[in-house]
Amino acid sequence: MDDHVITVLNNIGGFSFIALSAYLLLLSGEISFGQQAFYGIGAYASGMMTAMFGLSFWLALPLAMIVSGLAAAAVGGLTLRLRGLYFAIATLAFAETVRLILVATTWQVEVDGEPVGPNGSEGLGNIRWGFDNEYEPVDFLWMIYGTLGIVLLLFFLMERSRLGSIIRTIGADRLLAETQGIAVTRYKILVAGLAGALAAIGGAFYAHIQTTVYPENFDVMLGVHSLAYGLIGGLGTAVGPILGVLLDVGFLEAVEWIQGYRMIVFGGLVAVLLIFMPRGILDERRIHRLRTALRGRRQARTHGAAGA
């Protein structure tokens, strides 16, 4: 594979995490414009741990997820009362505050005679862990897709378990969830925290591939994109948001003549798609139909076997 393809694939993988993060919140009925904050916190926290304090990436990743997850759970707790647009705007305000504070913050330590650490809008550079350990982009590719595979597996298990249906119930009708004995606030905080940790994975990989990250990488564009991915791809399954990423980063990147007009094409695509499929391509209905069809075939087969 040539380097460009690997880069594109790495981007798709990295964005998938934040797309899944926004998707998880969408399932619970919350529109977040602020998941980029947790992607950014994941990137900065893991980058600082490896670059400034010499931790291994494999230790920094879970730590960054915890930091980011706790921050997200705290924000989720604070914004519990807010619904719909109010929640969306509050998350946006939080994310912009985080980004601007990163712009305003400088904290550097000396590593091998060089200052390392967040340096305002100059960003956090010298995240050399991948380089020092001779990781090629293709190695990151395996790491990203391995992690993504695990995350997707967990998502599928969640969707099959009651946890998934509880989250969907809260998202569809909060009052109904309450009258069915679901402790809504507790689950909301849990979901916010999980979503924060998920976004942090993407950020951590991003930081270690790029080796330098800037506060501007985590602006509102990233957040709204990640939200759009779930809505384009569909709210029926965790594959939906990834399909959304594929469409944007994969397809549009691949088609030469779109270059330079990408936002116009993508924007138009999203707008038109949402007119015809307001819950995305792989929405609940299509997924349900697919599932019933698959089950029908399987049942037909077992019945056939029993008959013979």
Binding site: A228, M263, G268, P278, R279
Partner: peptide, 12 residues
């Protein structure tokens, strides 16, 4: 959907 769509048009 409207809100996300308005964002998409913003990018356009």
């Amino acid at each position: 959907a409207s809100m996300v769509s308005s964002f998409a048009v913003w990018m356009q």
